[in-house]
Simulated scan of single mutants.
Amino acid sequence: MQGVHSYRYNVDGIGVSDTPNSPGGLSKRRSVDNIFPLLPSYFSRSSSRRSPSPFSRSASRRSPSPTPSSLYRSISRKSAELTGHPGASPASLSRNTSRRSTTPIMYSNSTGIPVKPPAVEKKLECTLEELCFGCTKKIKITRDAITSSGQLIQDEEVLSIKVKPGWKKGTKITFEGKGNEVPGTQPADIIFLIAEKRHHLFRRDGDDLELAVEIPLVKALTGCTISVPLLGGEKMDLSIDDEIIHPGYVKMIEGQGMPTKDPEGARGNLKLLFLVDFPTELTDEQRSNVLGILEDCC
């Protein structure tokens, strides 16, 4: 199995609008100076002089024409009644109305298309057994999510990853749109990177497995039968009778390694790396016997 693979999980997401909200508040305000042309004609002085009614003079004294300052104070008083704050102006009413708006403000880039933040990478540790025989991993994630009303909440979700036999360290599994949500952007992706847990017996080398086997010197010279552990908990007997086991000796057991991609269902090999345990002490008689046996062999 060559190379590192990448797997992508497509997730249907709900798009977040990136169009800025229209400005809230009141409609266009008219200045005080623009109100006077709309006032009735009986407020003018000439209209008072032309009035034929005998009560016009007293009515004029009792109801003087409104001045700009008095009219502005009247508008301010009505604004205060609306807002509940004395002295509040129409401008402050507009600001208060805009401030109370609950519509979330959305941002976008210059093209109007929501940007997508960089993907978030997480490590997913697997044992050699899980990578050899396959398994299903459940991962609980917590992320920032935006509700339909624009509120930011913490959302929990459990993701399921089906680990396939033969996956290697560095294999990528991508979940689209399962990262944090930020107003005005698309949800980020989450990428899980396969990492191999260290095994107490085996070491992986591509599609092969390596196992160190230590035997005493006498068995290395005279032959032996040993019990070899296999990945998964099984054992097999291996006899070595016609060979001398020397330091660095390697014995290959076919089909007991990791699954390969091609052909499908095949497995690599198990390499036995032999370590010879030499004695630390010999008597004079033992030395003499060894010398007599090995003198003509070296």
Results as ranks from 00 to 15, higher is better:
Thr147Gln: 05
Gly150Phe: 00
Pro165Asn: 07
Phe202Met: 03
Lys172Leu: 15
Asp208Asn: 14
Thr142Glu: 13
Glu176Asp: 09
Lys169Glu: 15
Lys172Arg: 15
Asp205Pro: 04
Gly166Ile: 01
Lys172Asn: 14
Pro165Thr: 07
Glu156Ile: 06
Lys162His: 13
Thr185Phe: 14
Asp144Pro: 04
Arg204Ala: 10
Gly166Lys: 01
Gly184Pro: 06
Leu193Thr: 13
Val182Trp: 11
Ser149Cys: 11
Asn180Trp: 10
Glu181Ser: 02
Thr142Tyr: 07
Pro187Gln: 04
His200Cys: 12
Lys178Leu: 04
Pro187Asp: 00
Gln151Arg: 12
Lys197Leu: 14
Lys197Gly: 14
Ile139Met: 06
Thr185Val: 05
His200Ile: 12
Asp207Ser: 13
Arg143His: 07
His200Gly: 06
Ser160Met: 10
Pro187Val: 03
Val163Ile: 15
Ala145Ser: 12
Ile191Trp: 00
Phe202Leu: 07
Lys169Thr: 10
Ile173Leu: 09
Lys140His: 12
Ile161Ser: 05
Ile173Asn: 02
Lys169Arg: 11
Ile173Val: 15
Gln186Cys: 14
Lys164Glu: 14
Arg143Trp: 02
Glu176Val: 10
Gln154Leu: 11
Arg198Gly: 14
Thr171Trp: 06
Lys168Val: 09
Lys140Val: 08
Leu193Pro: 05
Gly184Ile: 04
Thr171Gln: 08
Ile146Pro: 00
Arg198Gln: 15
Thr142Gly: 08
Ser160Val: 10
Leu201Ile: 08
Gly170Gln: 10
Val158Leu: 10
Ala188Asp: 04
Gly150Ala: 02
Leu159Glu: 05
Glu176Tyr: 08
Val163Gln: 03
Arg143Asn: 03
Gly184Val: 08
Lys168Phe: 14
Arg198Ala: 15
Ile194Asn: 01
Lys172His: 15
Pro183Asn: 05
Arg143Glu: 01
Gly177Leu: 06
Ile194Phe: 05
Phe192Ile: 03
